[in-house]
Design a protein around this nucleic acid. Structure first.
Length: 298
DNA sequence: AAGGATCACAACCGCAACAAG
DNA sequence: GCTTGTTGCGGTTGTGATCCT
């Protein structure tokens, strides 16, 4: 915390309130080219008279690529109700199940749209709850029923309050990976890419051939994967990840389109990049947070 | 048409957890 | 183990838009 006179001066000069388009532009341009390893230094380096916290919030809730700007659909609404009934006000947890939506957005939507309904009639989520229990029994049911494939909670949830709710674990699946936190579109933005031929992120489609639970990973087997934008190849999909600036090489021998994951490696690490079934006939590549790092020597 | 009430959403605040020194 | 700085989360507030009387 800067306690010098100059530091206090800086503090006094910090702007508050709504962001101007110019500030948005500055922040976006800076983060897309430099990242945000330390939020407190971002406003200084980006030439913004804001504090790091404000920049972080603005980026996460508004500027981050991949955010949906459209209305929350009834399907999404049902997911909110479902998970709110079991997780409570854990907005960030709920947001993990709604790609492209932020915790703030979900929280606001709850307070402005759903809370009153829920208070009037808490049973409105009963159908959703029954779906959760259905998933617990047979996740494949959900896959075939065109509903988001419910994944388990983040791995490190031993202290998760959700386990205490109603005295039992009401997560749809008690094991398995975290649902993709970021969707494909969040990995790429046209401004990220220097190659002009890749000026549009591809959409990937496929259909689930089979589903099975195994160990710590739920596996989906696809009969095919289609990358709709012909400018892209599977290599691009994997290689064009957040690690694209490090010289990773795709291990095509180890990759298998028909299974749940790809592998690619750098000189020191092997990355496993899962492909998760998200909704019917749509596939998303999971985010970097999903990658399971494996020391290559193992 | 005016003004108060309500709504929707962006942004702020405070706190807790965590990591680094 | 303590201190300090940073980050993430959830509650709350502020503000502009819209609705209602």
């Amino acid at each position: 915390m800067a306690k010098t006179k100059s530091g206090e001066k800086l503090k006094h000069r910090q702007r508050k309130g709504f962001w101007s388009p110019e500030e948005d532009e500055k922040l976006s341009r800076f983060i897309l080219s430099h990242g945000h390893s330390c939020w407190t230094t971002v406003p200084i380096k980006a030439g913004l008279q804001r504090n790091g916290k404000s920049c972080r919030l603005r980026w996460i809730n508004y500027l981050r690529p991949g955010l949906k700007r459209d209305m929350i659909s009834t399907e999404e609404e049902e997911i909110i109700l479902t998970f709110h009934s079991s997780l409570g006000n854990k907005w960030s947890m709920i947001a993990k199940y709604l790609p492209g939506r932020t915790d703030n957005e979900i929280k606001n939507y709850w307070h402005s749209h759903l809370k009153k309904r829920w208070l009037k009639s808490p049973s409105i989520s009963s159908s959703s709850e029954s779906r959760v229990s259905c998933v617990e029994r047979n996740p494949q049911t959900v896959v075939s029923n065109h509903v988001i494939s419910f994944q388990g909670p983040p791995e490190n949830t031993s202290s998760s309050p959700s386990h205490e709710i109603n005295g039992n674990n009401k997560y749809p699946c008690s094991s398995g990976p975290e649902i993709p936190r970021l969707f494909f579109s969040e990995w790429f933005s046209s401004s990220d890419l220097t190659d002009s031929s890749h000026n549009q992120a591809p959409s990937i489609e496929g259909s689930v051939l089979d589903y099975q639970e195994s160990g710590d990973v739920d596996q989906f087997h696809y009969n095919e994967i289609m990358i709709n934008n012909s400018n892209w190849t599977l290599d691009d999909v994997v290689f064009g990840s957040k690690c694209q600036k490090q010289e990773h090489k795709v291990d095509r021998e180890a990759s298998d389109c028909n299974s749940y994951g790809f592998f690619f490696s750098s000189s020191t690490m092997t990355y496993e990049c899962s492909v998760e079934y998200v909704s019917y006939r749509r596939i998303a590549v999971v985010s970097a947070s999903q990658w399971r790092r494996k020391a290559k020597e193992t």
